[in-house]
Design a protein around this nucleic acid. Sequence first.
RNA 1: GGGCGGUUGCCGGAGUGGUCAAACGGGGCAGGCUGUAAACCUGCUGGCUUACGCCUUCGGGGGUUCGAAUCCCUCACCGCCCA
Length: 449
Amino acid sequence: MPDLINELKWRGLFHQATDENALREHLSQPRRVYAGFDPTADSLTVGNLVPIMLLKHFQQAGHTPVVVMGGGTGLIGDPSGKEAERQLRTPEEIESNIAGQRPIFEGILSFEGENAATIVNNHDWLGKLSYIEALRDIGKHFSVNMMIQKESVKNRLEGREQGISYTEFSYMILQAYDFLRLYEDEQVTVQVGGSDQWGNIVAGNDLIRRTHYVSRVALVGTTKDGDQVEVGEQIVTQQVSFGLTAPLVTKSDGGKFGKTESGAIWLTADRTSPYAFYQFWLNASDDDAHRYMKLFTLLPQDEIASIIEAHTQNPGAREAQRRLAQEITKLVHGEDGLQRAEAATQALFSGDVSSLDEATLNEVFADVASTEHSKNELAGEGVALVDLLPLTSLAKSKREAREFLSNGGVSVNGEKVGLEDRLTATQLLHNSVALLKRGKKTWHVTRWK
RNA sequence: GGGCGGUUGCCGGAGUGGUCAAACGGGGCAGGCUGUAAACCUGCUGGCUUACGCCUUCGGGGGUUCGAAUCCCUCACCGCCCA
């Protein structure tokens, strides 16, 4: 078995671990490892890809991933990394969010074979936990002194801008209990997550240590006569659970990873189309592309090295971005999704949209903003583009439309148009569609009936 | 409850009676260069208008004035200080 920890380090997926050497030893045999996911939305974003990749690498190394959906903890709300108290979500919301996230894991992890992944919901045990029981069995192992030292809690206590409710303050205890339950019931011994989860992970680790494997070892001394006598005792705890975190993913320009002007990049097609997803990675800067290949693809080290080498030789070819986009899109959206994304990219950037057949055209532009119009308007001279543009998503006003047109920033069906141009019936593709583009990348479909 | 200060365009922030659609910066958009990049350069960034120009905006409402983002009254909200 190759050394997983070294692999993770090389990839930039290793931030810190509890007792690294012991963990390395521990992982020489197949183990069960978990990561938790918050059902705050009905999908996950590229930021969540990090813990998923961790699970994926563990699985490839022969370990068994366990995905924990926070059906219970989601009802409470993790204060980590949050400046303000969270809005509580209803059980129904949580339930449907879990349903929305599930397919993401099913697509990326393997659910077959010896070390098939499993998905569990922590509501299964947290929901049954009684308050008295929780306070006696779990709470007793936590010191408030320690809890208020925790980063996420401390900020909220010291800031005074925003307090923290007892509910969120208790969150750590619930996640710690998760680890204990999984440890006892599912033989899970390792928890992984992003670096923001370190506090919660360590809390779980502590809880397991305090409730397990405490043994007494005699300290033996030798008298001057050479006799061995017991001189004292030591309580020895044998740590058998571990935590490992990945660093926060950053962008080389200092911006926030995974966010674009148009919002977050999601992992499901209903929120971010495979095309937009593919484009997100394709537009990575050179440095980022190199790092992302290590972080988010499963390509082996030597292959990544040679891609980086080729890309450095000839950065204009953007080999790294292309492979990056291909690999991740395939991982998240499957072979199908990748093909759709590449077909759309080809059509949209060659500019030659007029040659597309109707089915492909509909496919490619399925996710693009569109408006419907009456074909009557196109009769005779047709409609002036200055008047049409404000009706679409491309221009907010006629004045703006005029500006774009006179700048040469607008094209119809791939042809540049100017201020005086009009749209007539003869220009429609397949007798029903005109594709407008503003700038380099912004498209709008007008459908005429 | 009292005192003081504030609320301006997407954001920050000037502007204290006409010369204000409102400086400057950021962001955004378009064009150029390029690698669907970065950096850089140019233009635009309330609406209508080919244009002259017109209309609507400076927390809400009311007033003073020939004329108000600017003065007065009032309401709302925010900040700081005192109780």
